[in-house]
Amino acid sequence: MLASLAASFPARPLPRIGVGVLIAVALGLLIALPLGLDNYYMRLATTVLMYCVLAWSWNFIGGFVGYPSFGIAAFFGFGAYAGAILLSAKIIPFWLSPILAAAGCFAVAVVIGMPILRLRGHYFAVASLGLGEVFRELAMSWTALTGGGMGINLPPMRPAFGTEAQTFYYAMLILALVTLGTTIVVARSRLGVAFRCIRQNEEAANMIGIDATRSKIIAFAFSAALPGAAGAIYASWVGYIDPSDVFDILNSVKAPVMVLLGGTGTIFGPAIGALIYLVFEEFVTHHLLQFHAGMLGIIIVALVLFMPHGLLETLRRRKQGQA
């Protein structure tokens, strides 16, 4: 909803300078953050940024277009393996690995999207879920390339400046900003209008000249390429990957839950959802370790019962009700 408002009207009459200052302060804080953080918080901050990328990526296909994808883990894992294989062969530098992983995931998503985006609703959800499992099995069995169940060790990275932890933080930060930028540009473009029309009524969208199939494939490819890049950075960051880690089905569930938490189809909802979710998850793992696994379930149930439209939309509606 916010996205649609943002797309059709100029932002609320906040003074332009005010917005500029706000953005500059936020960016400054994000850039300066590593200076004041110990290793634990650096890891947490990098993780938050990574999940922001995954949540924003899911938002393209799941939020804007309304196709409930569970394919995030598939492309996160694909990107992680692409990056790991290229880096351990020592044929590319670190900074190139997320770019190539993204390009690879984009291409794969276009090819796979053509058949599975013909499916709607539950059928599409199941097909996208299967994708991750197929990729995981491939990584398991293609031992010559992927090391199979043994996984891949990545060569240690020697950062040009700063520490290794800082390098990965900044890499994730850049990727998160690219993802946010893509989200904003798409939400305001013709493509964004096409996405919203398809979500509301695909048949009527076709009738007004929207190439629904093409638009859906583009959305799916965006929501594959960006997690792919995140996967490549993640692989270098942790230094060792195996199929059950990077194709973890939980990532396919967490991303949509984060978006639902923050607000579907909005611009900042996914990031807010990711932050709330991860802070909550940290808290639970620290204080209620035995209960940690039940948490995702409780969040999902609470979301469905109390905030089916996400935090931003619930707040907006409450505000509208008071006005």
């Binding site: 649609s4 059709s8 209008v193 509301q200 009524n201 009527a204 009738m207």
Partner: peptide
């Protein structure tokens, strides 16, 4: 009728 319900008449 098949409007896009979450969009305004103008949109």
């Amino acid at each position: 009728v098949q409007p896009f319900p979450e969009m305004t008449a103008l949109e």
